[in-house]
Design a protein around this nucleic acid. Structure first.
Lengths: 198, 198
DNA sequence: ACCTGAACACCGTTCAAGT
DNA sequence: ACCTGAACACCGTTCAAGT
């Protein structure tokens, strides 16, 4: 009867969450094994027991982020179009629901951050980046196709790509300006006005 | 008669260009003073003579990038709308015209990269990020207002924000997927189709 | 004015050693 | 199974010293 204890927090899990939190604020290259170890309450060398290299940790962090977003998106699919798209926009405006934030420093999507720093991560971690993009685009394609029955497959896919990229971009610029929500909202207003989110 | 020699390459200038090249590929946090010094042919400690801290170098790199893009955008303004917007899209698809690339590793806009890593740079460098965003948005606003005379000021600004963010996002995702131009083009197709670029 | 070597506290990684 | 201290070559930064 092997079963993970729920009384004791899982060290591996704690490392992933602490790493994710830092990546969303400061990026993957700014992530330090020594700081991470201090957060979790172990020594730097012990982190390597769970994640042999920093690249392995990158893979786990992006994978976890992707799984969480996938689960959240699935929970939205049954609502009406405008509500669904509104929730999708909010996801990029406010970050993952349920993600713990110990401070109010600006954060962005793990995937946006790591996409910039992609040259620093190994192939398996890059594959998780691809998984995240596909998960978003395919989910959007489903939502769009359900509303616009007359759209060709190509048109649906192009719009799905466009909405995903548009959200990541608005988030990135807002982050660069110190977490400026107004610039995010201004961009979304422009998207809506042009018909990209209809 | 003080006058900068044109026969000898300026060391400070060489540092900025080498740094810019690396930032576009790997990011600011991945930039190493020792590697940079080796590129330029001096020692690591000498780089600090020109840029006391890494943050000072960040400021110079973003500032230079901004100036170059501003100059390029000014050269476009007199052309017809579709051609102007087409050139703007191409700027984000292919990078700065005239920027030397010694290899064909994927690169993105300095501003997109540093926007992700903004927590690592000091205030003066962040101000250059703001300058870049404003330069793009104001230029786009001018182009849009010239075509759509009936648009309100707010509508023009919202669309300008939207187009800028949309380009940065398409570039970021393409970079995360290993410099995948097809995903950039797919997103642009979606933007065009929705009317964002008209 | 511009460059340098040496030192400082940091970084990821490895490894032999502990429990 | 999980953790550790010590060592390695790296990092940005400082500084006294060179020309």
């Amino acid at each position: 009867m092997s079963m993970k204890s729920t009384e004791q927090i899982d060290t591996r899990e704690a490392i992933i969450q602490a790493a994710r939190n830092t990546v969303m604020k400061d990026g993957y290259n700014a992530l330090s094994f020594r700081d991470l170890a201090a957060d979790v309450g172990i020594k730097s060398a012990s982190v390597h027991y769970h994640f042999p290299t920093k690249g392995d940790l990158a893979e786990a962090v992006v994978s976890r982020h992707c799984s969480d977003v996938e689960a959240y998106l699935e929970s939205l699919s049954e609502k009406p179009f405008d509500e669904t798209i509104g929730a999708y926009v909010k996801l990029f405006r406010s970050g993952i629901p349920g993600m713990a934030k110990s401070d109010n420093a600006p954060r962005i999507c793990v995937s946006a951050m790591v996409s910039a720093e992609v040259s620093a991560i190994p192939l398996p971690a890059r594959a998780q980046l691809e998984r995240f993009a596909k998960a978003n685009i395919n989910w959007l394609a489903g939502v769009i196709a359900k509303k616009h029955k007359s759209f060709t497959e190509e048109k649906v896919m192009a719009r799905a790509h466009a909405i995903f990229a548009a959200m990541e971009g608005a988030q990135l610029i807002s982050h660069g300006l110190g977490g400026d929500r107004a610039s995010f909202d201004k961009a979304v207003e422009g998207y809506r006005d042009a018909g990209l989110l209809s």
